Simulated scan of single mutants.
Amino acid sequence: MTTPENKSVLLFDLDGTLVDSAPDLAAAINEMLVTLGLKVFPQDKIRSWVGNGARTLVERALHHSLKDNVAANDKYSEEEVNSAVAIFLKYYQRNLCVESVLYTGVKTTLLALKKQGYRLAIITNKPAEFIEPIVTGFGLSGIFELQLGGDSLKERKPHPLPLLYASTALNVSVNECIMIGDSKNDILAAKAANMQSIGLTYGYNYGEKISVYQPDWCLETFEELLPLFT
């Protein structure tokens, strides 16, 4: 296997890449649905909706509630969606690291990469307010030089803006960066930014194989990053 060359900055997705956050996201979604008097869903079902930020997750939950409720309106209004998002965020804010876990080898691998001199950053579609509490909750404080959420800029992945912004903010070229994630959004954003990427097969990608989107490398575990960059 060829290895990435001349990389100094590693850009990581968060949900589905570093953290399996689906259990806490699912719990908050179901709390929201209960509050709204709607049917709840199994965690595995909600897991398949994760990956495009909080609002999209809520919209997917509401859409599926419509399909299962013949008495419901054909469509939720923007005001109703906004209200549901606020309810979801309230519940999730209180329970960020209850059942969520780091994927195997994440902390030791990140620390080893940082020790080798790589600069690390997070680029996620999760609202920015949740990044630091989660990073702190899992003992990862001080590891990441930059943390961008889905609402940090005017665009989010799969738009290339967050990746290009990170390159500029860290004063490196696009060629010195590599995007690492579990979702097509990560790979598509990297391609749009003309940046190399690594796809991880274990996260959230809506039931599709990450290899379909042709990342430059495809890994089955987070720990495989270490030999790739050593």
Rank of each mutant, 00 (worst) to 15 (best):
T136E: 15
C177K: 10
T17C: 10
F41C: 09
S211V: 15
G51P: 03
V212K: 15
Q214S: 05
S77F: 09
G181L: 08
I123N: 01
E79I: 07
K184P: 03
E79L: 07
V135P: 01
G139E: 03
K114E: 08
P23W: 11
V9C: 14
N82I: 01
S77L: 12
I87C: 09
G51H: 08
S100W: 00
L146R: 06
L25D: 08
Q93L: 04
L110W: 05
A169Q: 13
L111E: 12
F41N: 01
P127L: 06
Y204Q: 02
W217N: 02
N171L: 13
N82T: 07
I134W: 02
A192M: 02
D24Q: 08
T136D: 14
S141F: 06
P160D: 12
L110Y: 05
V9I: 15
G181E: 06
V70T: 11
K157A: 07
G53Q: 09
D186W: 00
V212I: 15
I122C: 10
P215S: 10
R55E: 07
S183K: 04
P215Y: 13
L14R: 03
L102M: 02
L25N: 07
D15C: 04
V135G: 01
T104W: 00
V50C: 03
A61R: 02
I187V: 11
V174A: 14
L226M: 11
L163N: 00
V50W: 02
N171M: 14
R60L: 05
M195K: 02
T168L: 14
K114W: 14
Q116W: 05
L36G: 08
A192Y: 10
G149D: 08
A193R: 01
T201C: 07
A190P: 01
K107R: 15
M1H: 09
D74C: 12
A61Y: 03
A22Y: 05
A189V: 05
T3E: 13
T56S: 09
F144K: 10
K39G: 08
Q116L: 13
G139C: 09
I122A: 10
K114T: 06
W49F: 11
S211T: 15
L146I: 03
N82G: 07
L38D: 06
A84L: 13
A22L: 03
T3L: 14
V40F: 00
L38P: 06
G199P: 03
R156E: 10
L66M: 13
T221W: 04
Y165V: 01
S173N: 12
V174E: 13
H64W: 13
P23D: 13
C177N: 11
A128R: 02
S100K: 06
I178C: 09
G149R: 06
E5Y: 00
V58Y: 14
V34S: 14
V81W: 04
L11H: 03
T124V: 10
A72R: 04
G16L: 09
C97M: 05
Q214V: 10
E208R: 14
G139R: 09
S167M: 00
I87R: 14
G53R: 12
A84S: 15
S100E: 07
G181P: 05
L111Q: 13
V174M: 06
Q43P: 02
A26L: 01
L219S: 07
E176R: 15
G199C: 01
L200N: 04
V81I: 15
I87S: 11
E224G: 06
D186Q: 01
